[in-house]
Design a binder for these strands. Structure first.
Length: 869
RNA sequence: GCCGGCGUGGCGGAAUUGGCAGACGCGUUGGACUUAAAAUCCAAUGGGCGGAGUACCGCCCGUGCCGGUUCGAGUCCGGCCGCCGGUACCA
């Protein structure tokens, strides 16, 4: 063993020890308070960990290790969200079974995670692709099915020919697939849907109780998108059925001058007149061919066609023309709107273009210039019939009054609309959970619980079957089965579940991974749930977190879990960007172009990347040294194509896992986006070296002789207990960066002491242990302890040691600091005494001479201020 | 467009409740040790000005910009500007 701090020796040593000793196996006893700290479920990709992963994992690991020391029973598990597209696409290319790819990737991830010293309980590892796991995913689906929350529907789905699969709305970004960026078209297909909309209100309302970032809750609220308004039925001239519209502005009903149906709306055929038929059909065909992208494009020149039909406005009996236009979406509201051009920007634009009358019904703007949409200041006008008048009312009251009237007359009722849609839950892929569903005589029937799991068969080819069905459709011997109840021939469902399925409930499986009567052991569940701290990236803000909450509520309703919400406290770690890069722009003629002019330049530009030494700072900009040419200085998202990916393995090799962990926490606040800087890793590495030398004599490898058995003196106790206090509070608040700087300050102080009292040194080691577990285990051992430091008690600070002998005051005159004052602690609360002392200061007197003191401010322990005129 | 977040030294960031802006780290500069270098240790380090003249003292400016409240504002209020994230014909 070397005598200097050598992470490459001590880190593997302790990792091996923890593994063999099962140091972090979760205690089965339930006499202690519990703490469940969870990381977001990793997908074991082929490229291994990047430095973003350990950020969240280190944060949770520090919490886990800290809570163990505080006497908690800690559940800190890990597992694999291992179904998914990449392994399947790799299989398409190479023929390798996704199971093998997945297994290899998991192996790699595990090694990397272990090399970082995370204190996971590896005996609870779960894997979504394990039949013992997905048996319960299927079981939960059966519950959903039994509860009427899973249904089949022929829906126009987002079909991605390139991926050979259907995507959820959330997986389509700007009309292209989120994965790979391939085109997506609408295609009707039989699909499984989950009725998440039935839980919309609860998903919305229960957000209030959660300790989550406000921004994230807001994103979920927007996603659910609850809006209050009214459903109003309009009679159609010459057709028996009404058209129902949803509006958030029933107060503007008198201003409706036309109606618009989505081109796909089923009533279009019934209202279209003979002479308009051709135009309408043509328009509908155009709309059908438009991709999602084109229809929602920023270029919003509104188009539409008059159907020839008329609807009757229930408030005034007026006949208004019915149009179709693709600015109205079938999937929003009822797929039909009453158009009020005076008070809706889209309707205003449309009415302008097609010369439809614009009527003012809320006073406050100029409807000839644009729609007046303010609902706070307006006053309703031109809105009365024989029975009711809204005139003179503010918008809010008018809404209530007209809604009541509509309801009384049977023309409509108050209604709540959601942006949230039902969840498209099937995929035409191989590498996912099979549905526990068979079709007997074409009718869907659940596979009995005893028959679970329905396992994935091996296939020869991973290509989609060509019909859009999954590769499973080609496995005759798997597809064809018999109904265990009747013995009739049956066919299996060939769709598989989306990747979200497995990650919707994994946090429950960790609680009792071996339990074989339900997804989770009810007794264990009552003890461990809810998750006390959940850390992960903001990219899961809506999808994963909304789906998991939905499933959790379903499981709550059928008595599987005891809490309404799964994740009590949630934190999003910020992304770690690559190192700052400097880029200069060069024109075709070889001249540099200043970075601030790049936007206005039309020609081709070459990007030249520069070293830090070639760049200077000038004002707020970076310039090429010795010139006035501005260059770009920016940290970019890490990506393979940019080549700025930092591999944690390299950092571990050079500085050790403890330094990597410490650096990732020291960079800045956990939630914030931060640029990586390898140079800065050296700073924390030096700090660890200083800690080592504080305790170990590098010549002998023994405890340094300046580490003495004496008790710390008063000054040392003060520094120590300040450190204990700050580190404790900061860890609780996840402010790891400032916790670390406090320990650095302590070490800088202790370095100046002649003798270093052993009790103080030991407390430092314990404080540091959650952050840098390897070096502290080694030091703990050197200090003579035989047990791991993992369960060594967290030190408590004593308030009495924090009290200083003297108190410093800043003495201000008119708010500017002019002197410092040191006051005996006993007298520091004595206003008259301190003020008197302050006035005697020479440097203060010259300010007091010139005028009269009009006010004296005294803030105990902090500041004295004289206001002089 | 709408919603949310953020603007502090050369850089990452600190200041948790309105009370001495710049903790801690990086970088830079100087010094000690060394044949030398690395490592380590010590010191200085927001900008400007002035008085000394030998490491001492003082003044002014300074937390994106403009204004306000206050004895006192990085922190609170109003109005802008910029960057990042989310979302978008949501009726």
């Amino acid at each position: 063993m070397s005598t200097e701090y050598n992470p490459s020796e001590i880190e593997p040593k302790w990792q091996k020890y923890w593994e063999q000793d099962k140091t972090f196996k979760t205690d089965k006893e339930k006499d202690k308070p519990k703490y469940y700290v969870l990381d977001m479920f990793p997908y074991p990709s082929g490229s291994g960990l990047h430095v973003g992963h350990p950020e969240g994992y280190t944060a949770t690991d520090i919490m886990a290790r800290y809570k163990r020391k505080k006497g908690y029973n800690v559940l800190h598990p890990i597992g694999w969200d291992a179904f998914g597209l990449p392994a399947e696409q790799y299989a398409l290319k190479t023929g390798t079974h996704p199971r093998d790819t997945t297994e290899n990737n998991i192996q790699r991830f595990k090694e990397q995670l272990k090399s970082l010293g995370f204190s996971f309980d590896w005996d609870r590892e779960v894997n979504t692709t394990d039949p013992d796991y997905y048996k319960w995913t299927q079981w939960i689906f059966l519950k959903l099915y039994e509860m009427g929350l899973a249904y089949q529907d022929d829906v126009p789905v987002n079909w991605c020919p390139e991926l050979g699969t259907v995507l959820a709305n959330e997986e389509v970004v700007n009309g292209k697939s989120e994965v790979g960026g391939f085109p997506v078209v609408k295609k009707p297909m039989r699909q499984w849907m989950l009725k998440i909309t039935e839980y919309a209100d609860r998903l919305l309302d229960d957000l209030d109780e959660l300790d989550w970032p406000e921004s994230l809750k807001e994103m979920q609220r927007n996603w659910i998108g609850r809006s209050r308004g009214a459903d109003v039925d309009f009679q159609v001239k010459g057709y028996e059925e009404d058209i129902r519209v949803f509006t958030t502005r029933p107060d503007t009903l008198f201003g409706a001058t036309y109606m618009v149906l989505a081109p796909e709306h089923e009533t279009v055929d019934h209202v279209t007149t003979e002479e308009q038929k051709e135009k309408v059909e043509e328009y509908r065909e155009q709309a059908r061919q438009k991709s999602e992208l084109e229809r929602t494009e920023l270029n919003r020149d509104k188009t539409g066609v008059f159907t020839g039909g008329y609807a009757v406005n229930p408030v005034n009996g007026e006949e208004i023309p019915i149009w179709i236009a693709d600015y109205v979406m079938l999937s929003v509201g009822t797929g039909a709107i009453m158009a009020v051009p005076g008070h809706d920007e889209r309707d205003w634009e449309f009415a302008r273009k097609y010369d439809i009358p614009i009527r003012e019904v809320v006073k406050g703007g100029d409807v000839t210039q644009g729609a007046f949409t303010d609902t706070e200041s307006g006053e309703v006008v031109n809105s009365s019939n024989n029975e009711i008048s809204l005139n003179g009312l503010p918008v809010k009251e008018a809404k209530e009054k007209i809604t009541e009237w509509l309801e009384k007359k049977g023309y409509g009722k108050e209604a709540i609309n959601y942006k949230l849609r039902d969840w498209l839950f099937s995929r035409q892929r191989y590498w996912g959970e099979p549905f526990p569903i068979i079709f007997v005589d074409g009718e869907a029937k659940p596979v009995p619980e005893e028959e679970l799991p329905v396992t994935l068969p091996d296939v020869e080819k991973y290509e989609p079957s060509g019909t859009g069905e999954s590769p499973l459709a080609n496995i005759e011997e798997w597809v064809n089965t018999t109904d265990p109840e009747t013995g009739k021939p049956a066919k299996r469902e060939t769709n598989t579940m989306p990747q979200w399925a497995g990650s919707c409930w994994y946090y429950l499986r960790y609680i009792s991974p071996e339990y074989d009567e339900a997804p989770v052991d009810p007794e264990e569940e009552k003890y461990w749930m809810p998750v006390d701290l959940y850390v992960g990236g903001a990219e899961h803000a809506v999808l994963h977190l909304l789906y998991a909450r939905f499933w959790h509520k379903v499981l709550y309703d059928c008595g599987v879990v005891s809490t309404k919400e799964p994740f009590q406290r949630l934190v999003n770690q910020g992304m770690i960007l690559g190192e700052v890069e400097y880029t200069a722009y060069k024109k075709e003629d070889g001249e540099y172009l200043s970075a601030d002019k790049v936007d206005e330049y039309d020609g081709k530009l070459e990007k030249i990347s520069l070293e830090e030494e070639e760049v200077d700072k000038q004002g707020d900009n970076y310039i090429l040294k010795g010139t006035d040419i501005q260059v770009e200085g920016k940290a970019h998202k890490m990506s393979k194509s940019r080549g700025n990916v930092i591999n944690p393995d390299d950092i571990v090799e050079e500085y050790g896992a403890d330094s990597l962990r410490l650096y990732e926490m020291f960079m800045g606040p956990l939630e914030q986006v931060k640029p990586w800087s390898t140079k800065d890793v050296e700073g924390v590495y030096r700090f660890l070296n200083r800690v080592w030398r504080l305790i170990v004599d590098e010549d002998t490898g023994e405890i340094d002789e300046d580490v003495v058995e004496d008790d710390p003196d008063k000054k040392q106790l003060k520094t120590l207990h300040e450190t204990i206090k700050k580190v404790t509070e900061d860890v609780e608040g996840l402010r790891f960066n400032t916790a670390i700087s406090q320990m650095m300050t302590f070490v800088n102080d202790a370095n100046k002491w002649d003798k270093r009292p052993r009790p103080a040194m030991e407390k430092l080691v314990v404080l540091l242990a959650p952050f840098a577990p390897h070096i502290t285990e080694e030091l703990w051992e050197k200090l003579g302890y035989e047990e791991s430091i993992a369960y060594a008690d967290w030190p408590e600070y004593k308030e009495e040691y924090l009290i200083p002998d003297t108190q410093n005051f800043a003495v201000q005159v008119n708010g500017k600091v002019r002197a410092q004052l040191e006051v005996d602690i006993e007298k520091s609360e004595d206003k008259e005494y301190v003020l008197g002392l302050a006035k005697e200061q020479q440097s203060i007197q010259k300010y007091l001479e010139d005028g009269k003191i009009v006010k004296e401010i005294f803030v105990p322990g902090k500041i004295v201020n004289f206001v002089v005129k």
